[in-house]
Amino acid sequence: MKLEVNGGNFYYGKRKKKTEPSFLYRNSINLKLCEGEILSVLGPNGAGKTTFLKCLIGLKDWKQGETRIEGKSIKDYSSRELWKLVGYVPQASKMAFAYSVLEMVTMGRAMYIRSYSQPSAKDEAAAMEALESIGIAHLAYQSCNSISGGELQLALIARTLVADPKLLILDEPESHLDIQKQKIILQTIKKLVKEQNITCIINTHYPNHAFYFGDQVMMVSKQQPVIVGKTEEIMTEENMEKYFDIRVKKVETEVEDRTFTSMIPHYLSEATQDSQQFNL
């Protein structure tokens, strides 16, 4: 599925008549993603990564520009049509009244269930299937508040899968997770995208995860223009210093006959030699 953003930009609040609105992004955003492609969005806290995701899928309205899916503006989709195509995975959080994992995942079928009816056995079967495909079927009857954060994140991914989305949007799915759980989440996402030929956009704090996902990267920062491009082009030492204000070393490592790229911050090496200096 083809996803395009043409000239998107956003500002908070209402436009005052005389003053020029202060846009969130230094330039308007343009990007194009094809089926099976993953775009990783990188940027420091507060740079507008989550806002970008929300504007992208119409949870917030672009103040200028538009998002097009299959060449058609998302404004021209009915809400039901749109959310059949788009799966949105928010950051997992605890809730006041916890539902069971199965109940939570069944909610992903909402756009297929008429307003006045209840989920059928078929909907529950679909939910169960999604849980199995993601490998957490054993958690189906546990409360969402009693499982771990990583498991809940997986359940939320499963919730989007029951609707069979063509576009998957994930907001920092691996944050707050230990590295073993991160591994499961990342592998699951990559596998899904490649196997089912889904288009995927993912916010992340980890540059190395952008290398893992490959394809495209978008970098956002308050002081810099938004840049989008192939991972190798964008993920440079210079850009990291410009956008994150941190010096990194790009290294290529060979593990089991495969080469992969990663970035190591300079300070990690300094820290061992001279812990007194806080030179970032």
């Binding site: 788009v86 006045y116 209840q118």
Partner: peptide
């Protein structure tokens, strides 16, 4: 009639919206 939809409304606003309900 809406009782199952109330489950969805209990989620955050954007989450609920993203599940395709008004």
């Amino acid at each position: 009639v809406l009782r199952w939809r109330i489950n969805i409304l209990s989620l955050s606003e954007e989450e609920a919206k993203s599940l395709g309900i008004s």
